[in-house]
Write a protein that binds this DNA or RNA. Sequence first.
DNA 1: TATGAATGAGAGTTCATTCAT
DNA 2: AATGAATGAACTCTCATTCAT
Lengths: 209, 209, 209, 209
Amino acid sequence: MGIQERKKREKERRRQQIIVAAKKIFSEKGFTKSTMEDIAQEAELSPGTLYLYFKNKDELYASLSLRILQYLNIRLEDLKNAENMDSQKKIAALKDALYDVYQFDPLVLISMFHLQSSETLKNLSPDLLADIMKLSRRSLRMMAQIFEEGIRRGTLINKNPTALADVVWALFSGIVLWEESKKLIDKNKDYLKQTLDIAFEILSRGVTN
Amino acid sequence: MGIQERKKREKERRRQQIIVAAKKIFSEKGFTKSTMEDIAQEAELSPGTLYLYFKNKDELYASLSLRILQYLNIRLEDLKNAENMDSQKKIAALKDALYDVYQFDPLVLISMFHLQSSETLKNLSPDLLADIMKLSRRSLRMMAQIFEEGIRRGTLINKNPTALADVVWALFSGIVLWEESKKLIDKNKDYLKQTLDIAFEILSRGVTN
Amino acid sequence: MGIQERKKREKERRRQQIIVAAKKIFSEKGFTKSTMEDIAQEAELSPGTLYLYFKNKDELYASLSLRILQYLNIRLEDLKNAENMDSQKKIAALKDALYDVYQFDPLVLISMFHLQSSETLKNLSPDLLADIMKLSRRSLRMMAQIFEEGIRRGTLINKNPTALADVVWALFSGIVLWEESKKLIDKNKDYLKQTLDIAFEILSRGVTN
Amino acid sequence: MGIQERKKREKERRRQQIIVAAKKIFSEKGFTKSTMEDIAQEAELSPGTLYLYFKNKDELYASLSLRILQYLNIRLEDLKNAENMDSQKKIAALKDALYDVYQFDPLVLISMFHLQSSETLKNLSPDLLADIMKLSRRSLRMMAQIFEEGIRRGTLINKNPTALADVVWALFSGIVLWEESKKLIDKNKDYLKQTLDIAFEILSRGVTN
DNA sequence: TATGAATGAGAGTTCATTCAT
DNA sequence: AATGAATGAACTCTCATTCAT
């Protein structure tokens, strides 16, 4: 078994090696302009090898999302388990978690938001798509639980928690993409943190009874 | 003079003919997978003709945004001029305006949000980019004015109006993209209106003093 | 008849107008990169009009050669008629004539040399080709006559005069093209006159008995 | 080590395979009308493969020149090292060398002369251009040395040797192009050798003291 | 498992030429 | 005669993917 283990570990390491390279290249050039050749070179592998680990370019791209979704899940899990926190605090903590996710890897996060609602999504292998969906759903469910709890306690307004989670997610992604867009035009502008703070302050006030 | 008039009208009609075709194709296949050939065929024109009206594929794509931004501007202009409306009402009206913009042309709106925060933006001709920027900025300024007014009157919390406008825009685009994304996975889901309603209700409560 | 005359004159003027424009554009951009659109614009005409006066782009290009060949013929004619000139002087005068032709329109001359021995030649209409051939042959014949005369008089070595004319023409075109080539690499270099002087001095010594 | 060797050899063979095909196609159709598709087909390769070996069409075209320039260099080198030859003999030998170069590959030589003094030259990659320039310059320098030697010995007239080399080169290229041109019109004519002989006889007489 | 040369379909774009007005 | 919008074939070049080694 030891050998198989080691092989599996090595295989996983290769995958990561490719993912790291892909992240770099995709971030620098965007999806369309990145070539498999570029990524292979960055990973110090041959183009052919990439196809041993990823079905195609789309899947490689989408795989980046998995890592960040996993990180998001961990952060939300922690938040869920946190005790002695009122809803206000939890919402503030949610904001921090999301901001951490952004900082964990801004470019990949943006890639992921691009991936959502785009053609690429349809071309993914069912397996990968299922993985992504599972993680997203779990994240949203955990966010919903925060609101659910507050509603149960009577501190938050009585709105469908799932919808509230959608609002949070939409707000977060909207802010990330919009601030990114402003940065594209004017490199100096970087108001993400501030916009996020204001947005969540309003959100917090808005959902509080 | 009549002849020049007619020619101008015909030229404009051709442009529209191409825009309609482009909208259809881009919506169906996404930017990358749509070919100029596809669009030409849809418009019942030859590929070369497209280039008489649009400098290249990027510009054709971006041109779609212009119309919807113009429509948005008009709606916001109306809102600005509306009298006898308290801030609450104005925010509700703002939501309606944005929803109308969505309904005016959902696919183009989504395209526009995709265009934002993508490499394509940088490849546009300065003229077109300037036009788009001008319209976006004007829209955001008008939204900011709604908040400004409320703050002046003391009915809204004292936050930077420009930032509030950014939050609204991010929220709107985030919801549109996220709900679209959910639809891609499951065609039956269409909660945009509901999510938008909840989001703006929270927003409204959140910014009210 | 007056009207027809006038029409013919006007037609000829239009032709010239186009030729002037074509010369400018071809000189600036070279044959391949010049478009009929460019030339039409320069001539302040529409692309379609060009085709009323020239069968196609190739013919328009080749037409430029005609003018310079005509000029060459005139200069050689003068030379032929010149009396009281020994062969040495005639050869020197021939050099001057050729240099004048170069100065008359360097870019068109170069174009003409490019035209020679290239694909384009085969695509010309028989008429135009015949015109060009007629003028070239006449020029060469006149050069040959200069040598013939000298040989008859015994001042020049007894070589086939036609071959000598070929040598002169090859030498002239070779120098023009080669010096042009050097200029392409280094704009400052312009030794055409000097090279031509040396070449003809040697030629003159070489053919003198 | 053997494997690397073999791969290198194979790579070089492929290059040659492409060059041979390119030569054939360019000769038949001229530069503009030859398509990469044509060449690929002739080489029994796919169009994409051509681009693995040559950056673009221009470079492929220019690459043809390199081989012939190398051959020219070798021939001139031999000539330079030849002892016990007076200047007359050396000039005759120079003519023979040039004629051999012509015979080595007439079509490529003509291509090279076309390349000279054409826009294409400017589009070459600096590396390739540098290679071509280096070889041309070296060839011309070696020709100049022949004259230099004769001048030093007092057997040749005292003219700038560099200019004399230019004259030789211009004369040679002029003759090749002009005789080619005549052949285009009338396939039966082939006076290149004879014209070259006469030209060099005159040259020789002309430069001899 | 890894390679990387080769593939070849297909893209965006250009432009000589035509023809209805 | 002149126009100029429209054509559409043809071009160069790219690059995701394959497969013999």
